[in-house]
Design a protein around this nucleic acid. Sequence first.
DNA 1: AGTGCGGCCTGTCCGC
DNA 2: TGCGGACAGGCCGCAC
Length: 271
Amino acid sequence: MPELPEVETTRRGIKPHVHKQKIKAVVIRQPALRWRVPTRLAENACGQTVESVRRRGKYLLLGLQNGTIIMHLGMSGSLRICKPSTPAEKHDHVDILLGNNKVLRLRDPRRFGAVLWTTTDPAQHKLLCSLGPEPLEDSFDAEYLYQNSRKRTASIKSFIMNSHVVVGVGNIYACESLFRAGIHPKRKAGSLSMQRCEKLVNAIKQVLTESIQQGGTTLRDFSRENGEPGYFAQKLFVYGKAGEACEKCGSTIKQITQQQRSTFYCPKCQH
DNA sequence: AGTGCGGCCTGTCCGC
DNA sequence: TGCGGACAGGCCGCAC
């Protein structure tokens, strides 16, 4: 579910409730997430204070004095701030009880998410050490995309969804960025001109920035830390719109499958 | 080295 | 109303 805007929305939402708070307890009801939630997480985190609430790609990082909690929301994960008295529901797998008497609660029906613990620099963690640049930072520019895509035969859509190339671009925002840049999703990554790389980089930055401003995209179950939805779904041009008329040219939006994922595009605007 | 799949899970929706 | 199958916002790990 959550792509970068949804994770960033979540980070901003939980930060005021979590930052500088002491962790009183960690309750693991269901440890079988994508990777088993380590038991030592609870032992190590208890009594520690949350010194930072950061994001790297789609990973959320809670920095404690003695280590870092690494969280990923997978396809269906969400974090809520609630009270200890709020009854845990079926898919509420992990609770972090805080000194302000609030609870940071992870819900994840599909359990593709993760909660991990590291005592060393999280940037060196196996899952984070080979990630590409943040799309909203200056290091992600046309020059970078152009140079790194040379001789790459994968489609441009799977290329920009590859977290080793650039982080945070998932299925929705890949489709939307390619539409805005006028690039066909099946085009070979290596065939883009410098000019079109620039268009695509700008489109990615624009789409992600606008979505963060709208609180992310809620299609079915994404919700913010307070249970509110995000509103970027209203600004989608192609995602989920197969059979509808393109807002720019009136052609019928098409749906195809790439890498076992749905791709939506306008056959006239994108080439 | 790069590419493309299988698989991890549950919930929902659609056609029969 | 029930059932099977397709599909869903991610991404590692493995073959080739």
